[in-house]
């Protein structure tokens, strides 16, 4: 862990708002090839403090490969778009075309019957 060493990026960053605590979202990567996954939220006065508190509050007994903290205010959310995200679009899924298997079988059967009669 080198994130809060003097001279690191976190060290250069100014507290979010002087003297005020802000909510940070905490993300950790638990192995070198692992995905970075959300862990928790916490209150801190600066990015450096958020990194320190994240480690102490949520990752004390776990080995981690990397740690991110992001001020919640810096995260853009798709607010109000919920309904658009939930419109049924089954025609975009393979399962929606399962009926074609039956149809194909049916037409194939009909064609076979025709051939036999001829």
């Amino acid at each position: 862990m080198t994130t809060d060493e003097p001279g690191s990026v976190a060290d250069q960053m100014v507290p979010t708002d002087q003297g005020e605590l802000a909510v940070y979202e905490v993300f950790a990567q638990t192995s070198e090839r692992g995905t970075v996954e959300w862990q928790a939220s916490l209150l801190a006065g600066s990015p450096a403090m958020a990194l320190m508190l994240a480690r102490e509050n949520f990752l004390r007994r776990r080995e981690i490969f990397d740690l991110w903290v992001v001020p919640r205010d810096a995260v853009a959310r798709a607010e109000g778009a919920d309904e658009l995200f939930r419109l049924p679009k089954t025609y975009r899924e393979v399962s929606d075309y399962q009926y074609l298997v039956g149809k194909w079988r049916q037409y194939h059967q009909q064609a076979m019957t025709r051939d036999t009669m001829a």
Partner: peptide, 12 residues
């Protein structure tokens, strides 16, 4: 402690 001292120093 170094982190706290830095933040307090910038706090006004």
């Amino acid at each position: 402690h170094a982190m706290w001292l830095r933040d307090i120093a910038r706090g006004g």
